[in-house]
Simulated assay, not measured.
Amino acid sequence: MRNSTIKFLILIAVLTFASLGFTSKKETNVLKNNIEIHNKSPKLVTVLPIGEAKTEEAPIPYTGNKYLGFKEALAFKESQGNYFVVNTLGYLGKYQFGKGTLEMIGIYNPQAFLHDPKLQEKAFEANASRNKWILRKDIKRSVGKRINGVLITESGILAAAHLAGPGSVKKYLRSGGSQGFADAYGTTVKHYMKKFAGYDVSSIKANKKARVS
């Protein structure tokens, strides 16, 4: 009787060890699938949902107060610095360019643009130069003033022009802020004027004919 009890206990111990020490075929397959999923490369193009701007904004990383800091801060606000983003309205890349703006600076293939980070950086520089030329008189007249409680700076003007286009910024400044602008996500000229104030963008050269070569 004692021997039978010992054998029974040994059998129970062996079965318990086996159940803990080995993974079923199903569990193995699940583990394998999870590894494959996590090791996959991210999709090249993602989508920013409508209403994103209404959520709480993430703090913008600080990379200095000159041109580099300005463009990287603006890029983070536009796309969190992602070159391969297309939003729900069709705006493209790190700086969220519209197709019409791209054509004005000499870019006619949106898909090639989306896949080319160097081209996107050149596009930002060309567009900023063009906007600075269009707004040169308004920059001279308005910098240092306060409109709707916001101190107007050159970098704020150029950031707002990137958001709304230079024409909308002209209207805002020349109307003393009474003619506002908000994009489809609810972001305003005033918001960009305030958020991107105080950067040194003197290295951006005003150029009426700025294009990407």
Rank of each mutant, 00 (worst) to 15 (best):
I139L: 11
K140T: 15
K140H: 12
R141E: 15
S142W: 01
S142Y: 00
V143M: 06
V143G: 06
G144M: 08
G144P: 04
G144Q: 01
R146Q: 12
R146E: 14
R146S: 14
R146W: 08
R146T: 15
I147W: 01
I147E: 04
I147H: 08
G149Y: 11
G149N: 14
G149F: 00
L151I: 12
I152L: 12
I152E: 03
I152H: 02
I152N: 02
T153H: 09
T153V: 05
T153D: 05
E154W: 02
E154V: 00
S155F: 09
S155Q: 14
S155H: 10
A159N: 04
A160Y: 07
A160S: 07
A161H: 03
H162W: 11
H162M: 10
L163S: 01
A164S: 12
A164D: 03
G165C: 13
P166V: 05
P166M: 08
P166W: 02
G167Q: 12
G167K: 02
G167E: 12
S168T: 07
V169W: 07
V169L: 08
V169I: 07
K170S: 11
K170G: 07
K170C: 10
K171N: 15
K171D: 15
K171E: 12
Y172D: 06
Y172H: 03
L173S: 10
S175K: 02
S175R: 09
S175T: 03
S175D: 03
G176V: 09
G177K: 06
S178C: 09
Q179F: 06
Q179T: 15
Q179D: 08
Q179N: 12
G180I: 06
G180H: 04
F181V: 10
F181S: 13
F181H: 13
A182G: 01
A182V: 13
D183N: 15
D183G: 12
A184W: 13
A184V: 12
Y185L: 15
Y185C: 13
Y185S: 15
G186L: 07
T187H: 07
T187C: 08
T187F: 10
T187E: 13
T188V: 05
T188M: 05
T188P: 06
V189F: 00
V189Q: 02
K190S: 11
H191D: 14
H191K: 13
Y192V: 06
Y192E: 11
Y192F: 10
M193D: 04
M193H: 05
M193V: 09
M193T: 11
A197K: 11
A197M: 09
G198C: 10
G198T: 00
G198N: 05
Y199A: 11
V201H: 01
V201M: 11
V201K: 02
S202A: 15
S202Y: 13
S203G: 15
S203A: 14
I204T: 06
K205Y: 10
K205N: 10
K205G: 10
A206H: 06
A206Q: 09
